[in-house]
Design a binder for these strands. Structure first.
Length: 285
DNA sequence: ATGGGGGCCTGCCGGC
DNA sequence: TGCCGGCAGGCCCCCA
């Protein structure tokens, strides 16, 4: 799915059409995605104004002026498409919904926001804003990687004694919230850490580098407007281009891009997910 | 508590 | 051309 940078890109794309705007009508074209939608969600949202559009990890939260919050998660293949977003557009685009268009927000402005998700691993939920800290999906999330709560000392302590490979640990949203399969591989390559290194064995200087590079790769990807692989589009339908900047992800058997390194990128499966790394310059811990 | 594997879905791509 | 296996940006759940 969209990882943190892609979700942040989507949030920024939604800002001008959602934040401060009234949802005239929410149309649900099926009973749920990953789980059933809350009963009455469409009616509960129709007529409400979005007061704030936030991101937490890979979730987008839209606070409504009714004391409720809409929660979006893009899963693996979720996309947001925006039509009729021109400021003066007063017409709804009455185009027939496309395949896998599951939720359609018609805004008072005339804009139409469509949640499309082929694999349906995504989520759309609604809850009382006051209960946010008790929401099961959000309650156990770790710190934001770009926030002040993440630093090398904290991560060192958090991973102390853990026997899981660092690759797996970084994918665990309870430890750090927002990283996914691409950016974990990229960050480990930048930090020159082998993905199979046991989490508890990472040395303080390595951890400093790791945190630095986690932040760096996410910042760069956000600045580039997310990655956009095969089936993901930014909200405006344009392809992002950070995908062209991947050093290791999906580059098996290709030369390592590190200056002076003669290694070749390898693919490895950990906890059922692909990891990409350079066996030459990523030190085993 | 922690770690691994299965399952959820559809689509795409490469090999035969 | 078609069919089939493998793979895909995520996360919950169950089991050891």
């Amino acid at each position: 799915m969209p990882e943190l940078p892609e979700v942040e890109t989507i949030r920024r794309g939604l800002l001008p059409v959602m934040a401060g705007h009234v949802i005239t009508r929410l149309t649900l074209r099926r009973a749920g995605l990953r789980w059933p939608f809350p009963s009455g969600m469409a009616d509960a949202v129709s007529g409400a104004r979005v007061t704030l559009l936030r991101r937490r990890a890979k979730y987008i939260l839209a606070d409504l002026d009714r004391g409720t919050t809409l929660l979006f998660h893009m899963g693996m293949s979720g996309r947001i498409l925006i039509d009729g977003a021109a400021p003066d557009a007063r017409h709804h685009t009455n185009t027939t919904p496309a395949k896998h268009d599951h939720a359609i927000f018609d805004m008072e402005s005339g804009a139409r926001i469509t949640f499309n998700d082929a694999r349906r691993f995504g989520m759309l939920d609604l809850f009382e804003t006051a209960t946010e800290s008790n929401q099961p999906l959000l309650a156990s999330l770790g710190p934001e990687p770009l926030g002040n709560d993440l630093n090398a000392d904290w991560l060192l302590a958090r991973l102390s004694g853990r026997r899981s490979p660092i690759k797996t640990a970084l994918l665990d949203q309870r430890i750090i919230a927002g990283l996914g399969n691409i950016y974990v591989s990229e960050a480990l390559w930048r930090a020159e850490i082998h993905p199979e290194t046991l989490s508890g064995n990472i040395q303080p200087t390595q951890m400093e580098r790791l945190v630095l590079h986690i932040r760096g790769v996410l910042d760069e990807a956000i600045a580039a407007g997310g990655s956009s692989l095969k089936d993901y589009r930014q909200t405006d339908g344009e392809l992002g281009y950070f995908q062209h900047a991947f050093a290791v992800y999906d580059r098996p058997n290709q030369p390592c891009l590190r200056n002076g390194c003669t290694g070749e990128i390898e693919r490895l499966v950990q906890a059922g997910r692909s990891s990409f790394f350079c066996p030459n310059c990523q030190a085993r811990g």
